[in-house]
Design a protein around this nucleic acid. Structure first.
Lengths: 155, 155
DNA sequence: GTTGAAACCTCAGATCC
DNA sequence: GGATCTGAGGTTTCAAC
């Protein structure tokens, strides 16, 4: 599926405000409501729009601590990599798990209510996981930038 | 502001589906529409809900490459840290910038259309930035988990 | 094949209890 | 928190370009 100028405008606007009404959206991109809605549905069906989410404030909701963990495994065999991913998939405080190239195998983003519960996650779930060679963690002091999603060129 | 069981249900549901209609939401949490809408507005005003966003598919939209960059600065004086944050704030491909403790000062999440444009960002914007001592980058091979937002306990 | 106009129907938001 | 009401928006149908 190819995206034209209007499609990219729609994507950009919905990324910025996921609850924008269809009539607002249509007006902004220079269409009337029905064709605009059809384009949105088509973008959803094509997988360009994966979903809509409220952005919640972690600190307000009891997760003031965000930690990045760099994990190296002893074996990089696909089976072992996959087992590790399965393992972290079941831990709700681990919000992101990215496999990287280089000496670090995975980077994890972990949220926690306090330092103690973070240590609990680390020592009871992460460090003793099978095949883990090393875990280096860094507390987030502050997040200067966290733009949801990706840049969408509309020109 | 304290959040009760219903508030947390609302947050969890809107985090999962940010475009859910208020009547649907009300039904799911066992309220009628007006008080449900009042709660949503209150959660927005309290800062628990920071906004609503469409989740776009980076690969579909021309950004198949995600890179994590670990940056160390020569000086950790607040003025220099802030200058670096300002600098990365202006680069659209840099989507996240977190200040960390430890020997790595910042971790950045960068998206790019291809390896060449990533190298361009790195060599023209990041490495020559003032006060940068070292930049280590790792390509993301795959993202095993990327749960939007934070866990919300509803029990 | 995509847009636009009109109809219908549901929802958001305000008011009052 | 719930009930009612009104105006606005979502969604479908159909005609036109």
């Amino acid at each position: 599926m190819a995206f034209d100028h209007i499609d990219r405008q729609i994507l950009s606007l919905l990324q910025a405000d996921g609850r924008m009404t269809n009539v607002d959206l249509a007006e902004r991109v220079g269409l009337t409501a029905p064709p605009c809605l059809r384009r949105v549905r088509a973008l959803e069906d094509a997988g360009a729009i994966r979903g809509y989410h409220a952005e919640l404030d972690a600190a307000t909701l009891g997760y003031p601590i965000t930690v990045f963990a760099m994990v190296s495994l002893r074996s990089q065999a696909e089976h072992d990599l996959h087992a590790f991913e399965e393992h972290v998939g079941a831990i709700p405080e681990i919000r992101e798990c990215h496999m990287l190239n280089g000496e670090i195998d995975f980077i994890l983003k972990i949220v926690a209510a306090d330092l103690k519960s973070f240590q609990d996650i680390l020592t009871t779930h992460l460090t003793p996981a099978p095949n883990v060679a090393s875990v280096k963690t860094s507390l987030t002091i502050r997040t200067a930038k966290a733009v949801p999603g990706i840049p969408v060129r509309t020109d």
